[in-house]
Amino acid sequence: MRRLAAASALALAGTLALVSCASAPSDATSSDTAAATSDFLPCIVSDQGGFDDQSFNQLGLEGVTDAAETLGTEHIDVQSETESDYAPNIASLVEQGCTTIVTMGYLLAAATEEAATANPDIDFIMVDDNTITADNVKGVVWDTSQAGFLVGYAAADYTTTGKVGTYGGAQIPPVTLYMDGFARGVDYHNEQKGTDVQVVGWNPDTQEGQFTGNFSDINAAKVLSQGILEQGVDVIVPVGGPIYQGAAQAIRESANPVALVGVDTDMYVSDPDYDDIWFTSIARDMPKSISEVIQASAAGDFSNEEYVGTLDNGGVLMSPFHDFESKVAPTLQGELDDIQAGIIAGDITIDTPSAP
């Protein structure tokens, strides 16, 4: 059976194509690229956390720069420090002549919709939100609960304390989707193996849990992580861009061995400073999908049909265990392969109100 580790490596190397639930844009050909005129200008607005977060915003910027390089054009990026920056930042890009604007994150939806309505000739790529109904807005989303489910199962199999934890930056669907998947994966392990592993920090049934309140306060994340670790957790999943750094600091200062789970990309590769504690990551192929949609816009093939990444099309995946490969049960990978096949076939369903 195909191994998840191999699939992860291939996907993160960019060799797997993301296919949307609707018709996905095809890779740009030389003629498509030639069709991009000199006035085509892709741009991007970050969410909080900045483009150096080594996660969400950085991956979005990589998609824009990749597209710009392929098309032989420039790009403009603007960074948001607070939510009050969203609308002004988008307006500044409109004023600078941007032809395609990527807005990073669910929290930018209102500002994106307003700008799209006022500027129907500009294509907007709304990352992590598919609620806007407009001809010039394309929602680009990923069902991260699927990869999160695999990681939750693996964490439940690995833990020695019987407690794993997760928390988020903000209680919004793109964040709780990760957390739901992780918690449901733990539940599935308990059902299948007769274990009683507890999830600290999030209850998928009540949709109640712990959050830092933003995606930039590393100290708040550290304090929150310390509180969770003090409850005996030995695997923790912070969901929210750079807030993982707070969790990593808490782990470094803990007297107990704790494994850290990354989100958005293979964090073992993205931030090697913590390679010794990265258990795995709940990853998605953001740069490739964003780049493809931008190139389609340049070629005149922009569509408002949503773009959804899944386990089936390689849009989401569980990263390799890397340094933890020798520390997990030898039978675990085979079980994960079977679970992935079950999710793809629809035999295993994931209960979450945040599914795209």
Rank of each mutant, 00 (worst) to 15 (best):
T82Y: 10
P353E: 04
A355E: 12
L229D: 00
C21H: 06
W142D: 14
F149D: 10
I218L: 12
V258D: 00
G60H: 00
S326G: 11
A250N: 09
A156W: 02
T65Y: 05
G60F: 00
W142A: 14
A247L: 08
A22F: 12
E114P: 06
P330G: 13
L61R: 10
S26W: 07
L150N: 03
L224P: 05
A298S: 06
V258C: 08
G105P: 00
Q295D: 11
G49E: 13
V197K: 04
L12H: 14
D85F: 00
N304H: 11
G240L: 03
T117H: 09
C43I: 01
H75F: 15
A7V: 13
A110Q: 07
D234F: 09
G97E: 08
T144D: 15
A11S: 15
D121F: 14
T176P: 03
V293I: 11
N136P: 05
D337E: 12
V137S: 13
I172T: 10
A35S: 14
D187W: 04
D123K: 07
G185R: 07
D187L: 07
Y106E: 06
A170Q: 15
P42N: 07
T112H: 01
G49M: 05
V261K: 03
Q333E: 15
P257R: 03
K193D: 09
T166D: 06
S291L: 01
G185Y: 04
T37R: 10
Q48H: 02
A255K: 11
V137N: 01
M126H: 12
V237Y: 15
V94N: 05
H189D: 10
L177W: 09
Y307C: 06
Y268A: 08
G262D: 04
G72S: 03
F40I: 00
T349H: 07
W142Q: 13
N190R: 00
D337F: 05
A13K: 08
C21V: 14
A109D: 10
R2A: 09
G209I: 03
S30V: 08
A329Y: 02
D312E: 15
A341F: 01
L61N: 01
F182N: 09
L336W: 05
D275M: 10
Q79C: 10
S291K: 07
S38V: 10
T161H: 08
G342S: 14
P353L: 05
S84A: 15
L12Y: 12
I277M: 14
V237R: 14
Y307Q: 15
H322C: 12
T195Q: 09
V141L: 11
Y167N: 04
G97H: 05
F40P: 07
N89D: 04
V64S: 11
A283W: 01
E62T: 07
M126Y: 02
C98L: 02
T33E: 13
L16S: 04
N256W: 04
V308T: 11
S23K: 14
I44W: 09
V19E: 06
E114S: 08
L61W: 07
G246R: 01
M104T: 05
S8Q: 01
I218R: 09
P238D: 08
